[in-house]
Amino acid sequence: MNAHMLGRVVGRILLFLAAFSAVFPVFWTLLNAFKNRVDIVTPTPLFIFTPTLDNFAYVLGRESVFAGLINSLIISGASVLIGALLGLPAAYAIARYPNRWSGDIQFFVLSLRFLPPVAIAIPLMVIWLDFGLYDTRLSMIVTYSLLTLATVIWLSVPAFARVPKEVEEAARVDGYGPYAIFFLVALPIALRSLIGAVAFAFVLVWNEFLIALMLTTSDAKTLPIVASELTQLGRDVPWGILNASVVLLSIPPLLFIGVLSGMLNSAFKRKTS
């Protein structure tokens, strides 16, 4: 066996270890979510145990978790909808009708990502308090729309730019107006990448923590906040319930893993051609 072969074997082992580290902690959390407390609090980790659904039943039956789930769905859903409805047309206009401000607009949209979330959350908290809208779904939806809108625009501009110009040109020759071209030509052709962009925006606000922590106290608490509060419980930590709520929180984003990886692939495919 020469040095090159040995290198490949070592390389594969490292890759395997990295993949193991990516998956195993999540898998372990999943296992623990199905364990009774006595099976978690053991001196030696247990792989074989009698599974139980008690943790999930408890979590889903708990009013705070259920309310958090509903809040998360409504707030993320509505803000993603606003982000897509306003962001996709804006991205198309930036991609297809460049003017002297296009560069500045794109930089402005990106620069929103520079802002430390805590710097937005503190003043917004005071603003919503003054308006009497603090800790409401409405204020959360409006605040998150800033995130979804900026994200959808940022990711959709390249997706629209990848639509072949000739196709749109041909549609215009056939008598399509600019709006018809957007709705009937550009939108369907770029659809796959656009779904990726919207899915990414959803994952972003679903996972968002700091702003939700500062802008909600009870009525509009989202699921990440509820889950984090469970982790701060006192000495007798209900580990199984905790694991179950973490699993519940992680399922929606993981459902999009295929879509997001597809978006990644199409984003890099262009450069090879």
């Binding site: 902690p25 959390t29 679903w206 996972n207 984090s228 993981l254 893993i257």
Partner: peptide
Amino acid sequence: LALLFLMPVILPRVSAAFVWKF
């Protein structure tokens, strides 16, 4: 492997933090 490597970053940070805290 690429698909598996994407998993940690898609997890909510709260989940990732808890998974490792435990």
